[in-house]
């Protein structure tokens, strides 16, 4: 097993611990997006927990903010703070590790949680880099259900208008949202065509839970000139825990003890 896959499964374990301890969180989406976060934070992005104020750091925005749980695990593992604090206090009384990314947590760029905001903010960050002749890149991760928010399309236009080749969006296409499949709720079919029509470079990743496929995609995105890039990552909601996979009920389901033990056992089997 490669290191990134190992890391993403270790992080899955952290997420399960966090979700079980808090009886809260969005476990299904966490498990679909965790490989994307792992690749960005441990392979792709230029970011240093000891020098987070560096103006040349890459910028990261979790626009699908309800998966803060996964981000908190990743930032802890990356050395921004004591990971155990996040796991033990998530969603609890007076914790800074609330259900959405917020700047009280070291490593978080801006508050999010209301869907459809991240891409516009990312456009602003990428524009600032161009204005200052800075080399940093801006990464924004969105959900596929989130693509029903109209503000995304305003941001897509602007990113293309300003040739933001330093902006890279990722859509975590797990095909499910709280009420059902994205096709049932509000189809976001042909996301690739939508982005291409708006002037973006599109990279489809067939298995968005495969770290190496993601690494290839982000590496390719860095070579793109004049156009922003979208990585359309086809993922599995609940990936890694058999009874959660592709089940909308695990959007924010809460595990009982037996389910918790099974989840940990299945993840450990992969790691073994």
């Amino acid at each position: 097993m490669n290191e990134l896959k190992r890391k993403s499964y270790e992080l899955r374990k952290d997420i399960i611990e966090m979700m079980y301890a808090s009886k809260a969180g969005h476990v299904g989406g966490d498990l679909s997006v965790v490989d994307i976060l792992t690749v960005l934070y441990f392979e792709i992005m230029n970011i240093d927990p000891k020098n987070f104020e560096d103006p040349n750091r890459d910028r990261f925005l979790l626009s699908k903010g309800h998966c803060a749980d996964a981000l908190f695990a990743v930032l802890g593992e990356r050395g921004f703070y004591d990971k155990q604090e996040a796991i033990q206090t998530f969603s609890k009384y007076n914790s800074k590790f609330i259900g959405h990314p917020n700047t009280e947590v070291h490593g978080v760029e801006i508050n999010s949680g209301s869907l459809g905001h991240g891409l516009s903010i990312g456009v602003g960050m990428a524009l600032a880099a161009k204005m200052n002749d800075q080399e940093y890149r801006t990464y924004v991760v969105l959900g596929d259900g989130e693509m029903a928010e109209g503000s995304n399309y305003e941001a897509m236009m602007a990113a293309s208008q300003y040739h933001l080749d330093n902006l890279c969006a990722t859509i975590d296409v797990n095909g499910l949202q709280i009420s059902g499949t994205t096709d049932e709720v509000m189809s976001t079919a042909s996301l690739a065509n939508k982005f291409a029509d708006f002037g973006w470079h599109v990279i489809e990743v067939a298995d968005g839970n495969d770290c190496m496929q993601l690494v290839d995609a982000y590496t390719q995105a860095m070579q793109m000139k004049e156009k922003p890039t979208v990585v359309i990552a086809h993922t599995v909601k609940g990936k890694g825990v058999s009874y959660m996979e592709n089940q909308k009920s695990w959007h924010h389901g809460v595990m009982n003890e037996e389910q918790y033990k099974q989840a940990i056992r299945e993840i450990e089997e992969v790691l073994a």
């Binding site: 459809g116 516009s120 456009v123 305003e154």
Partner: peptide
């Protein structure tokens, strides 16, 4: 012109982009 950004008739984007610029010290 290099300190001016036109976003078109898109007020949500107007404010989101502004926040992104500001978070990078603009």
């Amino acid at each position: 012109p290099k300190q001016f950004v036109e976003v078109g008739i898109a007020e949500q984007n107007l404010v989101g982009i502004s926040a992104g610029l500001a978070s990078c010290n603009k």
